[in-house]
Design a protein around this nucleic acid. Sequence first.
DNA 1: TAAAATGCATGT
DNA 2: CATGCATTTTAC
Length: 680
Amino acid sequence: MTESRAEAPAALPGLGQLGAVRQRPRRELQAADELPVARVMVDSPLPHLDRPFDYLVPAELADVVRPGSRVRVRFAGRLIDGWVLSRQAEAEHDGRLAYLERGVGEVPVLTPETAELFRAVADRWAGTFADVVRLAVPPRHARAEGAELPPRAEPPAAPTADEWRRYRAGPAFLTAVTTGRPARAVWNALPGEDWPARITEAVQACLAGGRGALVVVPDARDAARVDAALTSVLGRNAHVLLTAEQGPEARYRRWLAVRQGAVRAVVGTRGAALAPVADLGLLVIWDDGDDLHAEPRAPYPHARDVAVLRASLAGCALLVAGFAETAESALLLESGWAQRIAADRTAVRAATPRIVATGDDAELDRDPLARSARLPALAFRAARVALAAGRPVLVQVPRRGYLPTLSCARDRLPARCPHCAGPLSAGAAGAVPGCRWCGRPAPDWRCPACGGGRLRAAVVGSGRTAEELGRAFPGVVLRTSAGDSVLAEVPAGPTLVVATPGAEPVVAGGYGAALLLDGWALLSRPDLRAAEEAVRRWANAIALVAADGTVVLGADAGLPAVQATVRWDPAGFADRELADRRALGFPPAARLASLTGAPADVAELLGLSQLPPGATELGSVPVSRRDADRADGDQVRLLLRVPRPDGAELAEALHAGAAVRSARKSGGPVRVMLDPQELL
DNA sequence: TAAAATGCATGT
DNA sequence: CATGCATTTTAC
């Protein structure tokens, strides 16, 4: 019922075989009277086909094929899917036009706003429109199309901004959202903040003003928390939850309800940043430093950057929120594009538990067994006090599986390449250390901080923590939340909760204490974002601790990341991080692109791309074969850097280069990523 | 997977 | 050096 076919007339009887072949059943179709040309984007992964194609709209489809409609078209012989960008009076193509084969579904899947957004996302990340549509529009499910839409919820009253009064500019932001002004803010949430409730108030403010709202969170557990908060305030029908782990039918049904404007608020994970919310008034992104916001499928957009782009295009309000703050957020503030929403120091002090860093005990550190068996005395005492008072204790342990890399033997700062500031790696045992980015050897490396020349391998992996703790605190209930058994919540009471970052359960009233172990390991990771990531993980754990609780941070108190955490100064840390990145020429101060593929293919793409004049090549390095990746040949990765203003030009050049390669059908695939998340 | 363009062998 | 048939390329 939902498919409309442009029927070809039945073959005429009596027409000879030869005749039938000669004048091909040239379908006697008539073009629509009004706007007979449809401008169509075809669903092809080939970059050189990433442009509109003109088709004639048969009269039978005149009413069902609208801008945004999904269609089937004959393209180079085969039938493929496409999306109608617009209906036109005239074609741009001067050759013969084919007719659209049929329409698919009644509801146009693209809106003018999302069509523009998808094009902008494709352009920003050097990808194709079709790739972005694939991320944004769930697979069609015919049964879901027949489903009834939920009843429309009435706009709620504007919320009281009571809890937002703790933050400077907080109530003003809610007012701006209610009145439809495109306010843009970076919100530094206080520890212990019931952030799903605050976000719910912002959504309520937006709905009260008659516009739609969209909330993007890192994972399904966070989405469920916001979903519950929204339901408790707005009821069941005012919003939907859009996450990848729903079944295809439910997913498409909810997406359609949003598309048709039956539901005006959405909470979901990264893909939801592209959801077709009608008349968007507010975008919220929570914990934008979480790498789950980075989409692992082409063209690899980051949900925060999508949100920033979309807020600009749609002219809507944006709230970039979290307990921690990223260098990207700091740049939004520095440029004046966004304003900060934060509490003053008095309120911060009142809300923050006591946080102490243990420093690092060199002796414990040298012996990993001793390290896991003997908790620093401070941590042991804090845990015992909390448990004795009948309160739960959170123990945060890093996930296993970090790469062995090199750091200064004395102060443990990551060893960086003197030439390009990439991380040094030992490579084969005993080999000369070399740079993971530019491949240069660094035989006479010296630590820029302390002048030391000795390197040490930083290998991490603490799986035994739970066991060891059980022995240290006999008789105490021990729960773990990690990997595929993540707890959303634990009951209040004297429990030891061992969790990996991102999997910490919440507890009513907050934890009595938190022990953040192996901090030095987090900080000595080779990643560019290691320090920012460490601060973010610590901040998220600290935020779960009661204001009268204690946090023991197992890291050297002299390190800037540790100091910022102990003082609860995520904003100051982000500013500093931004300055550091600028000095090194890294995102977000500069824009990078990585090209990964067989050496010849990478070289070919580079040769075909007209890079902006300011582009510099950071050299190509062999890429270690990723887990289940194809076994074929050695791959290299090339990094390109341009000044931030040239980012669009860089993306365009690479897309154009890829288009030439695909038109030529030459060579194997090259993966292009802009501002890639992990820079090992 | 349909037409158009190109390549190629064959016969004059 | 046309002609017919096979193969490759284009893509509306």
